[in-house]
Design a protein around this nucleic acid. Structure first.
Lengths: 198, 198
DNA sequence: GTCTATATTTGGATAGAC
DNA sequence: GTCTATCCAAATATAGAC
């Protein structure tokens, strides 16, 4: 008679190896660019042949998908620590700063999650929905602020991504643009509040 | 006795073919992304084998270089039609708008000129210097405005590239972010003028 | 699960005939 | 200047032995 153990040591090991592969993939993406990721290098990094990776992922695409999902989960995890207070402007300020820092701290992740530069890669609808959640959070706070203008949300995202893109493209690892965050947000809220009272 | 003609029909033809190749390269870059450009496709598009392209360019790299140079020349040509008036704020407004439109009208060109996403491609120092010229023009107008703050210039570039990036990434071919230009610039100058009078 | 062996494709690039 | 013929390298992916 066979006994079914409650823990499946085999699949635990499988999952652990999968996680190890993804971690190595992040490192390679950071080192040589997201598009430069190759299965050979990835295999070498985890101590196996490229072909053996197929025991863990169906394709290279599936690896990008898993990375995309991990990135989104990291972002949601980060955002879950943001409390909502009675002051929506302060909430937006903190949310925006967190977003900028999250993006700048790992340009490869930013590229995967928010830019469409991997040829032929489309995130799964499920993962994409996570990203929309973040935008909706911001929109809600704008409404709480009394701003019902969709242009305000678009201007807000443009302001944040402008700082992020300039920081990543022209001063990687530095803070030349990130340090302008408070000033930029002051500017933005001065503008929004002026529009409101018109 | 041989006679030297004043026109060299052979090199004229050579130059014309080079130009034709570059035009085809732009089209391919627009269609399938800048990084997706391949010599095989490029040759097919101009009706020759990939190997024959080597009669016109030393390498694929040399083609990117030539494209980079052309893109910068196009930008400078465009900017040469911008007059400098007695009103530096109006000059900045027009210059910024022109820049946004120039970038948005050809995302592949924007990617080549301003983002660093082609693996291993570094523009020649000469071409890079052209790009710096544009920034210096903006800086000069800020000084004329009485703004001597380098942060203002950085905030200005972040604002413009934020609109551009969002437009290209999230509404290609549309105007969802570009149409916010005037509002964004109003916001910016309100802020700058407030700082000035403090 | 990992390996060897191999298929296939797709790049960039060179040599030499015409 | 263009072609054919080739080379070389790198990449994804599959088959089958162990």
């Amino acid at each position: 008679m066979s006994v079914t153990p409650t823990r499946d040591r085999r699949s635990e090991r499988h999952e652990a190896t999968r996680a190890e592969i993804l971690e190595a993939a992040w490192e390679l993406a950071r080192e040589q660019g997201l598009a430069g990721l190759s299965l050979r290098d990835l295999g070498r990094k985890v101590g196996m042949r490229a072909q053996s990776l197929y025991s863990y992922f169906d394709s290279k695409h599936a690896i990008y998908d898993a990375l995309f999902r991990q990135g989104n989960e990291q972002m949601l995890e980060r955002r879950s620590h943001l409390d909502r207070t009675a002051d929506p402007e302060a909430d937006l300020r903190r949310g925006g700063r967190q977003f900028v820092e999250f993006c700048v701290e790992d340009p490869a992740r930013y590229q995967l999650l928010f830019q469409r530069t991997i040829p032929g890669f489309e995130p799964s609808a499920e993962s994409y929905a996570l990203a929309v959640t973040v935008l909706e959070g911001a929109q809600e706070r704008f409404r709480a602020l009394g701003v019902d203008d969709s242009a305000a949300l678009d201007l807000w995202t443009a302001l944040l991504t402008g700082l992020i893109d300039q920081q990543i493209s022209n001063d990687p690892g530095g803070d030349r643009w990130v340090r302008l965050y408070d000033e930029a947000v002051d500017m933005f809220f001065d503008h929004v509040n002026k529009e409101k009272t018109r």
